[in-house]
């Protein structure tokens, strides 16, 4: 079987469940291992970062997306191509800052939380924090330093899930950053 054969877009719904459940098992393990939610968030972000710096290569190889001309274009590509390719969803890009350096991704039906209920006592846990790291890591590989935070999380009872991305600076140095 050639490598491409497994790379179609057909019937990958099931691996979504495998992914979702495996991610759940990971978060459960981290909660066992760490004392505070903040430490779990940090660890998830770190793992997401490591995934992001690798995932960007897959993204660039498989999408025909070229260089983005501005941050607005980047936002669209993240939502419509990136999220679509890897998670099968298309978040809405919204709430631009006047300066155009900050926007939100509104995620309805977050696949990571499909089978999840947050138990009591984990108000500070950002369950899907892996996504922050993935965004941060992958954008860093295309010379953009961004700050990623969860503003709202439907899992905690908010109306929706809102991930905020803030452009910090353009990285001039194209050398790959060391992995953590």
């Amino acid at each position: 079987m050639s490598r491409q054969a497994g790379r179609g877009t057909e019937a990958k719904k099931v691996s979504a469940e495998l992914f979702t459940l495996t991610y759940g098992a990971l978060v459960a393990q981290l909660i066992k291992d760490y004392e505070s939610d903040e430490e779990v968030n940090k660890q998830l972000d770190k793992m997401g970062y490591n995934i992001g710096v690798r995932l960007i290569e897959d993204f660039l190889a498989r999408s025909s997306v070229g260089r983005c001309h501005d941050f607005r274009e980047t936002a669209d590509v993240i939502a419509k191509v990136g999220f679509k390719m890897f998670l099968g969803i298309t978040p809405t890009v919204a709430n631009w800052s006047p300066a155009g350096d900050e926007f939100s991704l509104i995620v309805d039906n977050n696949p990571l939380t499909e089978f999840v209920e947050l138990p009591d006592g984990h108000q500070n846990l950002n369950y899907s924090n892996l996504l922050s790291g993935v965004l941060r890591g992958s954008l860093e590989m295309v010379q953009m330093e961004v700050d990623v935070t969860f503003l709202q999380d439907a899992l905690k009872g908010d109306n929706t899930t809102e991930i905020r991305l803030k452009f910090i600076r353009r990285l001039e140095d194209a050398l790959p950053a060391g992995e953590e």
């Binding site: 691996s15 979702t20 991610y23 291992d33 793992m47 995934i51 995932l55 890897f86 998670l87």
Partner: peptide, 22 residues
């Protein structure tokens, strides 16, 4: 639909995390 590459990278992170901590 989740992506196979994404799952593989997640699995790699899980393995590397466990080997670092336990």
């Amino acid at each position: 639909m989740a992506d196979e590459a994404l799952f593989e990278f997640l699995h790699m992170e899980v393995v590397s995390y466990l080997f670092k901590t336990a």
